[in-house]
């Protein structure tokens, strides 16, 4: 979503983005927010420049915001990190509070079971040397 019109979205898709996708269209809707009202609702509209900052929001199947990240324009985002977060949120949602994903968790890696026994004992279960990706 940006303040560009749907016409400009089409031109960007046709003349640049599709060339990164072997001629295929962008596989998701490119939304237009020309008056910035939706950006204001999400807190990412910059009144001074009249544009939206790089804000990314994860919304769960119940319509609840689970995560967001907002960046200034010159640094691009990391899709792999977004996918990792979605997988982590899906796992904890499925587990209904019985599992949590520690820092640096990747799909297939160990989760933690929160409870009285774990208090003060995380060091036995999780070690930055083994469990954090380099």
């Amino acid at each position: 979503m940006s303040v560009d019109s749907v016409f400009v979205h089409k031109m960007w898709n046709d003349h640049e983005l599709s060339k990164m996708l072997d001629g295929k269209d962008i596989p998701f809707p490119m939304l237009s927010d020309q008056n910035g009202n939706i950006g204001r609702l999400y807190g990412v509209y910059d009144e001074e420049s009249g544009t939206e900052t790089r804000g990314r929001f994860l919304i769960d199947p119940d319509g609840i915001v689970q995560a967001f990240e907002v960046m200034t324009p010159p640094v691009g985002r990391n899709v792999n990190e977004v996918l990792r977060q979605i997988k982590a949120f899906q796992l904890v949602r499925e587990a209904k509070g019985t599992q949590v994903t520690p820092a640096g968790w990747q799909p297939g890696k160990k989760t933690l079971k929160p409870g009285p026994e774990l208090v003060g004992n995380v060091w036995k279960e999780w070690n930055p040397k083994q469990d954090l990706d380099k």
Binding site: M1, S2, I59, D60, P73
Partner: peptide, 9 residues
Amino acid sequence: WVMLCFYPG
């Protein structure tokens, strides 16, 4: 699950 992305232009 929805990923909603804003960007400057």
